[in-house]
């Protein structure tokens, strides 16, 4: 049973990572910096609980806020460019963050034991959960509570004017600008929101694994972050969740019996999926269960609604 709870925890933190990239992707920007934001969140929240002994909830919120501020600062120069240049700029930022933590040594004495990031060795013993007697299902419930809050918030934002603005910028920047939208503000705003979510996710991730090191937050994690929303489809937050289940549940856990060949199949299946469903598994539109029921089942009307 613990194994399945552990799996659910992995789904949860990866969903947060994917959602952080989802917000930025809505504005049409491909950000490879999400792994860097995730790292900042992980180290900040880890420092909060392990080094300064604060409660986990404020720790991850502080981690989210710190990451959001950094994302906002990075957003201004990075979002002057777009397309491929942005991919490279954010990739470079992510690598810079990783190398910063690779070189960071900052330890404090707590109860006769040195805790804190220690260069290449990483940040050991972020043991908030075991030290406070949290059981596995407590942790899982906590993670999914955060995930659901974030998902509901994003779902709601998508239904408001802000969501329409984000998508307008994503579809055609020039058209969006011509109706008076401030592109920089929208993009930096999306980046900041993405940074906050990545910071939350990273903070929780640090506590579930108890030991973080720079190598985890490399280019591979950044590609996973953008892979979830693109593979799932940008229509709604559910696309990201489906893609996390598909990649983490089916490709990584479900195919474990294939041994070494699993990782080979992994990349090939992503290639195949993008050739068959270029708009993602759930497509570009949000599911319209409610609307379809109201409009009835006349084929002509359905065609227009879609």
């Amino acid at each position: 049973m613990d194994f399945y709870f552990g799996l659910l925890q992995i789904f949860g933190v990866h969903t947060l990572l994917g959602l952080s990239a989802y917000v930025v992707l809505l504005t049409g920007q491909v950000s490879m910096a999400q792994a860097g934001f995730y790292a900042i969140g992980a180290y900040t929240a880890g420092a909060g609980t392990a080094m300064f002994g604060i409660h986990i909830l404020p720790a991850i919120i502080v981690a989210g806020l710190v990451t959001a501020v950094i994302a906002c600062i990075v957003g201004f120069p990075a979002l002057r460019v777009k397309g491929l240049m942005l991919v490279v700029a954010t990739l470079a930022f992510g690598e810079m963050v990783r190398l910063f933590f690779f070189n960071l040594t900052w330890q404090v004495d707590r109860g006769g034991e040195l805790v804190g990031p220690n260069g290449a060795e990483g940040f050991r013993s972020i043991r908030y959960f075991p030290e406070h007697g949290w059981e596995v299902w407590h942790v899982t419930a906590f993670i999914w509570a955060v995930v659901i809050v974030v998902m509901v918030a994003l779902w709601w934002v998508d239904r408001t004017r802000a969501g329409a603005v984000l998508r307008a910028v994503g579809h055609d920047e020039t058209a969006a600008q011509s109706i008076g939208l401030n592109l920089t503000a929208v993009k930096v705003g999306a980046m900041t929101a993405g940074g906050f979510i990545a910071g939350l996710g990273g903070g929780i991730y640090a506590h579930t694994v108890t030991h973080i090191e720079h190598g985890v937050f490399g280019v591979l994690l950044a590609t996973f972050a953008i892979a979830y929303p693109i593979l799932g489809g940008l229509g709604s937050v559910f696309g990201t969740v489906i893609a996390v289940l598909f990649i983490q549940g089916f490709l990584i856990e479900g195919l474990r019996f294939l041994g070494d060949w699993r990782s080979l199949l992994f990349g090939a299946l992503i290639v195949l999926a993008m050739n068959l469903r270029p708009t993602g598994l759930l497509g570009e539109h949000a599911p319209r269960w409610f609307r379809r029921r109201k409009t009835g089942s006349e084929p002509l009307e359905l065609k227009e609604a879609n």
Binding site: L25, V30, L220, T223, I226, A227, I230, L231, S263, L264, F266, G267, A268, L269, I270, V271, A273, M274, N275, P278, T279
Partner: peptide, 14 residues
Amino acid sequence: MASLLASVGMLLFL
């Protein structure tokens, strides 16, 4: 985005 992610899949595969 589709070709971008497909090339990421190819990267992982290779």
